[in-house]
Design a protein around this nucleic acid. Structure first.
Lengths: 191, 191
DNA sequence: TAAAGCATGTAATCCGTTACATGATTTA
DNA sequence: TAAATCATGTAACGGATTACATGCTTTA
């Protein structure tokens, strides 16, 4: 049910088409939530039928821009105030980190290096956005607050990835293990 | 396909039943990945048919403990080394933070206070686990590394939630807004 | 005029949750 | 002996991705 409220909230700020929303979900707010156009269009249809959003503008190529209605804004507020957030985590990079003991240390270090670079790249992106941020309106201030969460957690995870890589590199040095192990593949002894 | 490899990796460390795995996914590694028993049992069946895991022990009440086979361990390694991690993020608390401008500042601050407490509770849990951690085996060292990611990101996000709450509290003070706004509900002016 | 980009939709499939269903063993 | 816990499974449903499908408009 989160996509529903994400759309409602985004369209409360300014009118957008399904196309605009899909673009948003694949770029700026991809660090928070994401969705494909194939999921967005049907949901917009349902929201319109329920009277929570309405078409406020029609453009070329059948473009329809929607905006959230008063009832729609009430619905978002009721969701925010009346339901508990789902705090379930599914973090594939961390799942992989959990299984790195199955590789030889040099390979593990290489994968953590890639993680490090991914975090560094995101952080740079966030920092650039933060520079040009004008917190003029309430929505923009909220956006800045979310961006701050991104900045802080990417910094933390960048530091972590570097530290984690060093753990495995220390093992590489000690054991003298190679990046490409023998046919029977490194450690991980059978019970 | 991540659950598949999560099971393979976990069963490479020590034999476990579907029940054990379900418990693990609902407690210790819930901060990284999660799954219900209804998803686990069929997947174990498929992995067994593929020869990637095998029953190594049978117990009371039809209990079956599985362990990863040599082919299974090769499969995890191939996954780790040969595929890019899915770094897609879906963070409902942050999505909500993005929409907090729709509430009056006092309500927004209250929600952020709850977030703060959720992060503090997780952090405490992680810290307690870290205290009693014995990094004796390679899997345990990998577990400690993942725990470190939890510690660092929860600290970062706890600090963030506090800072974010203070932003909205500052607005509360300035505007003198109440927790329960007038019937037309606070700010968020219609275009 | 061709390619790139804008724009909307549907269908098939997969992953995950909730609910349904059952029964054995241990503990109070 | 009743309740709690261990233990395994299936079915229905909903949410999300990939693939299929179409066509207009702008720009090079």
């Amino acid at each position: 049910m989160s996509l529903r409220h994400a759309l409602l909230g985004l369209l409360a700020e300014r009118p957008m088409s399904g196309y605009d929303l899909a673009e948003l979900f694949s770029t700026s707010i991809a660090n928070v939530w994401s969705a494909k156009h194939s999921q967005i269009y049907p949901e917009l249809g349902r929201l319109e039928s329920s009277g929570l959003i309405e078409v406020v503008e029609e453009g070329p190529r059948g473009r329809k821009a929607y905006a959230t209605t008063a009832a729609g804004r009430d619905e978002v507020r009721a969701w925010l105030l009346g339901t508990e957030p789902d705090r379930t985590v599914r973090n594939e990079p961390l799942l992989r980190a959990f299984l790195l003991w199955l590789l030889d240390p040099a390979d593990a270090a290489a994968l953590l290096r890639a993680e490090e670079e991914a975090h560094a790249a995101r952080l740079t992106g966030f920092e650039q956005r933060a520079e040009h941020w004008s917190p003029a309106s309430p929505p923009q201030r909220a956006g800045r607050i979310v961006l701050e969460a991104g900045l802080r957690s990417q910094r933390a995870l960048l530091g972590w990835a570097r530290w984690a890589r060093e753990q495995y590199e220390a093992q590489t040095d000690r054991t003298g293990a190679q990046s490409v192990p023998s046919p029977t593949q490194g450690q991980s002894p059978r019970r």
